[in-house]
Design a protein around this nucleic acid. Structure first.
Length: 798
RNA sequence: GCCCAGGUGGUGGAAUUGGUAGACACGCCAGCUUGAGGGGCUGGUGACCGCAAGGUUGUAAGGGUUCGAGUCCCUUCCUGGGCACCA
């Protein structure tokens, strides 16, 4: 009589043994088949991990365990993205110091949650971005970028969140609102640190084609980089200090339709575009402009009183300024072609500016933005616009008034944050020497302990108030100087953490060259598509920059990336504020980690996501009970059974293929079907031992605890998770010898027949026509055609 | 508005990529198991007609290509995601 399956006892037992034996530690020095299996690390919060985290981690672990069974030396680390506004805001809310809050949250995440799902994370290589041992090297990284000319301190119009009291990167603003707190953001002009990611726009765009990533992710990156081909066209100016202005357009073919020129309202040299006497008026207007609200208003603008000279016709076009033209895209100025651009048309209508159609084909309403035949375009009349575009650019080039050019929508990466909870940017501002790097041997610049870490709202970080920390001597001239008081963006922390994991045991360098050569790029990276552009793009940039410095060999950090789906609850992302968080702890306690993992993976396709509900979990419970029963009762040693060998090899190949493609749900379906058969045989006393072993090995990545227990119980001393333990697969043995072929009449199923696999078409036709049912339906008639597809179908056409 | 991905039983989802639609589960129904609880096992279960054999119909809607369409093409609707004053 078997004892009952008690998940909590089994799981506690093996968690303890694995930890004692160090089963999840990876020998990083071994040159043998390294496989870097990476999951995006979480930011610790007080809420703890919810089901939305457990799904991805379970999948990552299944994939890692599967690689290990295939013989790879799998490194599967985990860490914590513990710096940043998220963490700080929470600390502010509960009125405790973020360092303390994070210590507690990290412990909870690791000990009470991550360890309990039975994942084989190598905790010897954990990373915590808020730990000085880590951010020492984040600062080091910043200095390398600084030295390479990729970090720049400059003025910029920035987006400011009045509630978070800090600048936001473009990506942190959604429709004019702060993505964190939803406040309406304001525009400010501040001196900030930018990383010059735009230098790599083209390279990163091109390299996407070489990456094995989810297509959806690559597409988002392509759109984000936003390469646009067009022309830069120079207009001479009259009536103002400035002599000319360049505009960018993707439609040089519409040049003859330009009826005015618009300069961005926040153009830094806007004053140069007006007659001197009107500067006061201009500035007054500028100061009254509303902030970057969600809804753009295309009617807002001011005539500057100066003129732009059309480079081909010599006509004088009025120059305007308007906020609908963006300063940080293209050249910050446009030629307005109201007939062929909706925004220009709206502006022209509001200000009664002329509209000239230069591409025929438009209807009566709105601007025509398509292509067509050119009209009102002088010598270019009659040309198709695609052709005219080239000709006009050629003409401009000869006249030295323009050239073909490419513009990207990607902006430089603004990393300054006027907050407390981040790595201080390791720069010293010296009145004499300017921006001076903190010498490497003085790193890390420790985040000073302060009582009041609340953001100040004045545009400077709370660190600015720590006088004895701020005031230093200049490393270059020894004179009095001040530290940079902003901290860096969290995304800088996470832009290089995959480089740190393999080298956490080196405290005198960021990453060891040899280790890095061996372990990077990451072989498999799994994470959410919410990081498709920012994190993944920043990481790619950092890797490329480091390679440019000769510090790493590879240009790309992640060889393969797969986006998992997002698990929602009642149609919404899980969040405490919404009150729809599903806590995994309760499920693990009630059903066990194995059942829970299996259930999460069985819910639906891993890369699709879906709505969480727990209706079917009992199905998985039954499945594991059956495995418990079947494998222990299967003792028959008949290994020569051809039919059952076919089934067994089918399982091995099928599960293998499914895991490789991250189709965990269908892999589990196969395991269920197999266990069902085996259980019936085992109950009848003829279950094969080899089938039991195969089932346990194939199930091991999904349900690591129960399979380990049963492996031991069925007489094995070594672990079921041993490297290289995946059962051998012989596709030939898995191949079917008999197949059922469908017989259709006019495409409708009318019967089936069982034939030997590979039966040729001619024989299939003949046998189909001999079927009594078919003879009956034919009723003596001669079929017009009989289509036969080997091993599939015969279609009799009447 | 633009760009993606997707719409399959009562439910979650399968479908070798143009070849027997609904695998595997949940739920439900019936039967068995004599420890009455959300236990275990066996069988059934898209809809409609039929005692049955069998037939008709069926993958968001409509059209098309094909011997054959959930799968390919066109149009429309809906859902999810990304971008959205980026010239």
């Amino acid at each position: 009589m078997l004892d009952a399956y008690d998940p909590s006892a089994v799981e506690a037992k093996w968690r303890r043994i694995w930890e004692e034996r160090g089963d999840h530690r990876t020998d990083l020095e071994s040159p043998d088949r390294p496989f870097y299996n990476l999951a995006m690390f979480p930011y610790p919060s007080a809420e703890g991990l919810h089901v939305g985290h457990m799904v991805p981690y379970s999948g990552v672990d299944i994939h890692g365990r599967w690689r290990r069974l295939h013989g790879d030396n799998v490194f599967q680390p985990m860490g914590f993205d513990a710096f940043g506004i998220h963490s700080e805001n929470y600390a502010l809310k509960i009125g405790q110091h973020p360092a303390r809050v994070m210590r507690r949250a990290v412990t909870n995440f690791r000990e009470n949650q991550l360890k309990k799902i039975g994942a084989m994370f190598d905790w010897d290589h954990q990373v915590n971005t808020s730990d000085p041992a880590y951010y020492h090297w984040t600062q080091w990284l910043f200095l390398r970028l600084f030295e390479a000319g990729l970090a720049e301190w400059r003025d910029g119009g920035v987006l400011w969140c009045p509630s978070c009291l800090t600048v936001l990167a473009n990506e942190q603003v959604e429709g004019g609102h702060c993505e964190r707190c939803d406040s309406v953001v304001e525009a400010r002009w501040l001196r900030q640190w930018y990383l010059k990611i735009t230098n790599y726009a083209q390279e990163m765009l091109d390299a996407l084609d070489t990456l094995d990533w989810s297509e959806s992710t690559k597409l988002m990156q392509r759109n984000w980089i936003g390469r646009r081909e067009g022309a830069r066209i120079v207009f001479d100016l009259a009536g103002c200090e400035r002599t000319d202005v360049a505009v960018f357009t993707t439609r040089p073919d519409t040049l003859y339709g330009a009826t005015f020129v618009v300069i961005a309202a926040d153009h830094p040299q806007l004053e140069e575009f007006v007659p001197t006497e009107r500067r006061g008026e201009l500035n007054a207007w500028r100061n009254r402009l509303p902030g970057p609200e969600a809804e753009p208003d295309f009617s807002v603008g001011i005539s500057l009183g100066s003129w732009a000279i059309h480079p081909l016709t010599g006509q004088r076009l009025p120059v305007w300024a308007a906020p609908y033209v963006l300063n940080d895209y293209g050249t910050g100025a446009i030629m307005a072609v109201p007939a062929h651009d909706d925004r220009d048309l709206a502006f022209a209508t509001a200000h009664e500016l002329p509209v000239i159609e230069v591409i025929s084909g438009g209807g009566s309403n709105g601007a025509f933005t398509g292509h067509g035949v050119m009209v009102n375009s002088g010598e270019f009349d009659g040309l198709p616009s695609e052709e005219g575009r080239k000709r006009i650019v050629e003409r401009l080039a000869t006249a030295r008034r323009g050239e073909a050019t490419v513009t990207y929508r990607l902006r430089d990466w603004l990393i300054s944050r006027q907050r407390y909870w981040g790595p201080p940017i390791p720069i010293i501002h010296c009145p004499k020497d300017g921006q001076v790097a903190v010498p490497d041997d003085q790193l890390p610049v420790l985040l000073p302990e302060v009582e009041d870490f609340r953001p100040t709202g004045t545009g400077v970080s709370p660190l600015a108030t720590v006088e004895d920390w701020v005031n230093v001597t200049c490393p270059r001239c020894g004179g009095p100087a001040r530290r940079e008081t902003d901290v860096s963006d969290t995304f800088l922390d996470s832009s290089w953490y995959y480089l740190r994991y393999p080298s956490t045991d080196f405290d005198d360098l960021a990453f060891d060259a040899e280790r890095t050569r061996r372990w990077l790029p990451v072989d498999m990276y799994i994470g959410g598509n919410e990081h498709a552009v920012r994190h993944l793009l920043y990481a790619r940039f950092v890797m490329r920059a480091l390679r440019g410095m000769g510090l790493v060999d590879e240009p790309e950090p992640f060889k393969r990336f797969r986006a998992h789906g997002m698990i929602v609850k009642d149609g919404h992302k899980m969040s405490k504020s919404r009150g729809n968080v599903v806590n995994p702890d309760e499920y693990i306690e009630k059903y066990g980690a194995d059942t829970f993992r299996l259930y999460l993976m069985f819910l639906g396709p891993y890369t699709a996501g879906g709505d969480f509900r727990d209706e079917g979990i009992v199905g998985v419970t039954r499945f594991l009970h059956r495995v418990w029963h079947a494998t222990q009762l299967a003792t028959d040693r008949d290994e020569a059974d051809e039919v059952r060998e076919r089934r067994r090899h089918g399982l091995i190949g099928g599960v293998d293929e499914d895991i490789a493609g991250l189709h965990f749900n269908t892999a589990i379906a196969q395991l269920m079907a197999f266990s069902h058969d085996l259980d019936q045989e085992a109950t009848a006393g003829r279950g094969r031992r080899i089938d039991a072993e195969t089932l346990l090995l194939c199930l091991a990545p999904f349900a690591p605890h129960i399979t380990e227990e049963l492996w031991q119980r069925t007489g094995h001393d070594e672990s079921v998770h041993t490297r290289g333990g995946w059962p051998e697969h012989d596709a030939a043995l898995a191949a079917r010898t008999e197949v059922e072929v469908a017989v259709q009449v006019n495409g409708k199923l009318r019967g089936t027949m069982t034939v030997a696999a590979g039966t040729p078409q001619a024989e299939l036709r003949q046998r189909a026509l001999e079927l009594p049912r078919i003879v009956e339906l034919l009723d003596g008639a001669e079929p017009r055609a009989v289509v036969a597809v080997v091993d599939r179908v015969v279609n009799v056409v009447l």
